[in-house]
Design a protein around this nucleic acid. Sequence first.
DNA 1: AACTTTACCGGGAACGATTGCGTAAATAAA
DNA 2: TTTATTTACGCAATCGTTCCCGGTAAAGTT
Lengths: 352, 352
Amino acid sequence: MKFEAVTIKDIAKALGLSTSTVSRALRDSYEISPETKKLVLEYAAKINYHPNPIALSLKERRSHSIGVIVSEIANSFFSQSIDGIESIAYKNGYNVIISQSRESFEREVINLNYLTSRSIDGLLVSVAAETKDFSNFKELHDRGMPIVFFDRVVNEINTHKVIVDNYKGAYDATRYLIESGYTNIAAVANNEVLSITKDRIAGYKAALADHHVQERDAYIRYCAHGGLLSSEVEEVVADLVSLDPRPDAILALSDKLTTGCLRILKAKNLKIPHDIGLIGFSNSEITELIEPPLSIIKQPAFEMGEIATDLLLQLIESKRPVTDFETKMLEPQLIIRESAKRKRAGASAGSQ
Amino acid sequence: MKFEAVTIKDIAKALGLSTSTVSRALRDSYEISPETKKLVLEYAAKINYHPNPIALSLKERRSHSIGVIVSEIANSFFSQSIDGIESIAYKNGYNVIISQSRESFEREVINLNYLTSRSIDGLLVSVAAETKDFSNFKELHDRGMPIVFFDRVVNEINTHKVIVDNYKGAYDATRYLIESGYTNIAAVANNEVLSITKDRIAGYKAALADHHVQERDAYIRYCAHGGLLSSEVEEVVADLVSLDPRPDAILALSDKLTTGCLRILKAKNLKIPHDIGLIGFSNSEITELIEPPLSIIKQPAFEMGEIATDLLLQLIESKRPVTDFETKMLEPQLIIRESAKRKRAGASAGSQ
DNA sequence: AACTTTACCGGGAACGATTGCGTAAATAAA
DNA sequence: TTTATTTACGCAATCGTTCCCGGTAAAGTT
């Protein structure tokens, strides 16, 4: 099957002109007489001419497409981000090529190689949970590929980044739990190496410290695959609830973990928030419909995608090499619902 | 910023060969001596040579990328479909360029023009809710563009299609409601012109008829924008519950509508399933966590994306024009949970 | 010794578009 | 009338790659 497009040559031949004249006429060059322009433009419109973007790309040495690497598309946060990415890219005439790491370092590297071999103009990345070796990104960046990280960033690479205030998100959520009377607060986090994990855990710890609640190592658990495997969440939660003293609340530090914990807590017949409180990062649109309505920390995913793309396009279209990079930090939104309401707000902290 | 790639010319120059020889060596042509091949291959690997896909595209007159038009990415069904699309496309060396219609005919046409002007090799489409004029697709298809429709197909165009058995899905759900003792079953559907709407409504009606339950026009409602506007769902549900007799169950005929109805029913303080039963099409991963756990008809979204892409690639890579098109129909999955359990199965109809 | 193969390799056109340069004709200035 | 300038267009190189068409030297065949 073929889809034959009309070229500038067809126009030239039909009108008895050279291709250069046609090209110039189409670009409204001053070198072409108004009559010729009119002729060309009208004929072009008539036969529905569109310049071949591939030929243009070859000439201009840029593809007008950007690559995106996320862990999985079918995840509320990422699909919302991609929505934002697509809208800005589209507005600026760029294609978006998406690939998924599924939290695997290996797949991430493969995707990276694939995308660069497809001659993309820039890259938008939220790194995989497994990734602790950033040399591939680093090398690519050093060789001049514009990269913008969003959500899960890599601090070792000096470029634009877009994140939410993960520290604050976790801090506020933890504080809320403490102020609601929870004292044994466990944290279930994504892979330990992730920037979001570090920042969120830091916020969690700080909130505990600031409110004189003792931090316990046993209460902090990591899921190497970010909850992509339900077994790892299951294990972690099972461990947690078998502890003595058993945690009276769980702070889940990423999307998949939040729903994962809830699922397992329910399976274990623990009543939320009575037996155990739950709050977590989530971008699902229907957390309010859950039983119990879920308290969440929500990220402005769409905006993050928009901003990251804006920054990337700036990088791509900048004439001079950019050396002044910024990290945009957005506000997370703490939404309190039933799943983390236990005692009255304002109860004195630091119990036991 | 620029990202300089190494070309075949660089290799030729460095090795004192012609570009044709290098090209042939890289493609393992029999015309090249083993020694030269080895030389070229090793040097190419050393300087990390990758053929420029844009130059190849220009030469071969195909871009190795496929366009996708869906109503919105941030929708469980579509993001799961895209997941499937991406996996097959990736496996075959194709890029996926995604665009969103947001249920608008106008945006769909714009996306269509944009994608074709980006010289894609084929198109995967799930039509927008508003679209009743298919002439744009038809014309494109007639001009030789391979198109595969999935989920929301257009019957007027003879090409491959991938759907679930929407009739059966709606029929089985309706039958389940009837057998559970519901008698006044309303249907809330997407835009009337959509193929999925027609098929699902037909299944709903057939189930009513087969079980001697009277069909009422007032019980069948359409949402022109597929629930993208929460106001339209609100209106429809408000109307429905004010009817006399009030429906004792709602069958929601698409993703957004299912959660939309639930949200509004809850806001109206109606107890599900006691006051009103609810079942609907949904591909959300967390419907079991909802209060009450949602009974759903689930589509094999990932597989649909995979199959549609497979079919599209067949079309693209076929030497001869394909005239024998097929419609793959997959099985929907009926998952019964609390939201549609009222009386015991097998209870006689006619309640109150 | 003369001819035919075979093995290897290079030149250059082509894909579709842009663009620097050259130039004929028309017009203006001398 | 001669020269300079402007107008309006064509030629050809270029982007990176493939591939048709040759070409040459060594080997094999009479």
